[in-house]
């Protein structure tokens, strides 16, 4: 098409402003329709997940080798420490065995209904998508496994986070340290309920604790069963005071180096019975205290 030079120059000058307008449109679109952007990102992450795994593999081997070398250096001290720990653990083993026996007897006497065993899926963390704004990791999963949004991710030591987006071969786990993470917790010794609020730092804060029952330094923090997808009693960490009046949780899970995660599906583990006058909860984001929950009597 023959176009005059002036027209073409004018058109060329309009390209950049038009693109900037489109960029503003993309920002608004991202705010209005989060699902679309997230789907796009998860599809890309799905495509790249094998490549990310390939990058992570040599690093893991290297860390393993260097860890081995350090272990060899500290062998003597480690042995002494382990022997001491072993004697103390043997004592605790006896205590635990006695308690388990007693527990079994009591449960048998009370006609206790056991909890359903939750199903879980394990996956390798392929990428830390923590950025300036969020604390999250990307999990590589087998395409055949069913991981649902809202699944609970745990590592060997404690709670890590919750699944927020699910792709075909990967899932994104929002860590408990993220600034949008709010979880109801129970403080084990003071028996107080509180909210653990992440703030993008390594130590999430404890907020909304009762003022006449303040958290005690070093006490264990566990989840409480106030939201349906999160059962009571999962270990989270312990209380630490950064300064007087500012309690934080030191997470039990190693959130700096998450390697393998187990994603548990606790959804619908307790279905409330149908009752006349009961208003059904809206799907997703429904919260309701369940009076029939198993651990209520211990913590409440």
């Amino acid at each position: 098409m023959p176009v005059s030079i002036q027209f073409r120059q004018a058109l060329g000058k309009l390209v950049l402003p038009a693109l900037i307008l489109v960029a503003c449109g993309v920002i608004l679109l991202g705010k209005a329709d989060r699902g679309l952007i997230e789907k796009l990102r998860m599809n890309t992450a799905d495509l790249l997940a094998p490549a990310y795994g390939l990058v992570a593999w040599p690093q893991e081997k290297l860390r393993w080798v260097s860890g081995n070398l350090q272990d060899i250096r500290n062998l003597e001290a480690e042995n002494i420490r382990l022997r001491a720990e072993n004697t103390s653990l043997r004592h605790w083993y006896d205590v635990a065995a006695a308690l388990a026996d007693e527990n079994a007897t009591l449960k048998a006497n009370l006609h206790w209904i056991p909890d359903n065993a939750p199903t879980f899926v394990s996956g390798r963390v392929v990428r830390d998508t923590s950025g300036l704004y969020a604390r999250a990791v990307l999990l590589s999963l087998n395409p055949d496994t069913a991981v649902r949004k809202g699944g609970i991710a745990l590592d060997g030591a404690g709670l890590v986070g919750r699944v927020t987006e699910v792709g075909r071969r990967s899932a994104r786990v929002l860590l408990i340290t993220d600034s949008s993470s709010r979880l109801p917790v129970t403080l084990e010794s003071s028996h107080a309920a509180a909210i653990m609020a992440g703030d993008n730092s390594a130590l999430p804060r404890i907020i909304f604790y009762p003022q006449d029952n303040v958290p005690i330094e070093g006490e264990r923090v566990v989840t409480n069963g106030e939201i349906e997808s999160l059962p009571a009693g999962l270990p989270v960490g312990h209380v630490h005071y950064l300064r007087p009046g500012q309690p934080v949780v030191v997470p039990a899970a190693d959130l700096d180096h998450v390697d393998m995660l187990r994603v548990f599906d606790y959804e619908d583990s307790v279905v409330p019975p149908d009752a006349p006058g009961r208003v059904p909860l809206p799907s997703g984001g429904g919260t309701m205290p369940l009076p029939t929950h198993s651990d209520q009597g211990l913590h409440g």
Partner: peptide, 24 residues
């Protein structure tokens, strides 16, 4: 400009931040 736009979309998809900010 068009190449910058394409690169901006690419960076936005890979970076998990608020959408469109890197692009802008």
């Amino acid at each position: 400009s068009l190449a910058v736009f394409v690169l901006g979309i690419w960076a936005d998809i890979l970076s998990f931040g608020p959408a469109g900010v890197m692009l802008l």
